[in-house]
Amino acid sequence: MDGIHDMGGKQGYGAVDVDETDEPFHHDYEGRMWAISRNVRADDWTIDWWRHVRERIDPVDYLTRPYFDSWMQTSAAAFVLSGVFTLDEITSGHTDKTGAAAEKQSKADAIEANRVSCRDFSEAAAAMPVFRVGDLVKTMAFSSSHHSRLPQYARGKSGTIHAYRGSHLFADAGAKGVHEGQHIYTIGFTARALWGPEASRNDVVYLDLWESYFEKP
């Protein structure tokens, strides 16, 4: 969807805060929300459904509220939509349906759990890949009103296939709970193809795009 999240190439957002200090978390709640998100989910969530729920945050909130606050609201909303918690439970922070206490991980447990969480998104596609490295491709001019990983700035643009990356779960389908494999390629778009003559003639922007984002040859 053409939501506020699709930020590539939008103008007017100002300077980047290059003086940020280096600590991993600037507030305690950031680390706690990160830890929660790594460990707790509903059975039917997919990574792209979760991303899409975040995309549906009110645009003003998306721009103005802190980053991990948006993760809290995303997980909370996704729990409600999956029937894990009610709105009242989320807003009160309490439930009558209590459960047995969860396991207590140590730091070493957490490091190992992080290690084994490495995920392979490969999923076989129904047909052979259509394109080859070096092919010139053109992306679709339009996208859907649901989740898509074809950003607005790269729609209707021509680029060159830099690499074939195999067949991966298709994000747009995953956001609807559908597991579908599709070929994926890294496409190099020249900066001038994307942005016109203001851009440097030497620069390239690479995107990882699924095969159905391209016009048929």
């Binding site: 991993p24 978390f25 305690d28 680390g31 706690r32 990160w34 830890a35 929660i36 790594r38 460990n39 707790v40 918690f85 309490h94 439930t95 349906k97 209590t98 459960g99 047995a100 206490a101 969860a102 396991e103 207590k104 991980q105 140590s106 730091k107 447990d109 957490a110 490091i111 992080n114």
Partner: peptide
């Protein structure tokens, strides 16, 4: 309360990261 995660596990992940 629901038993989906423990406070100690959250602490451990914050320390790990």
């Amino acid at each position: 309360e629901r038993g989906m995660i423990s406070t100690e596990t959250i602490d451990a992940w914050v320390e790990a990261y």
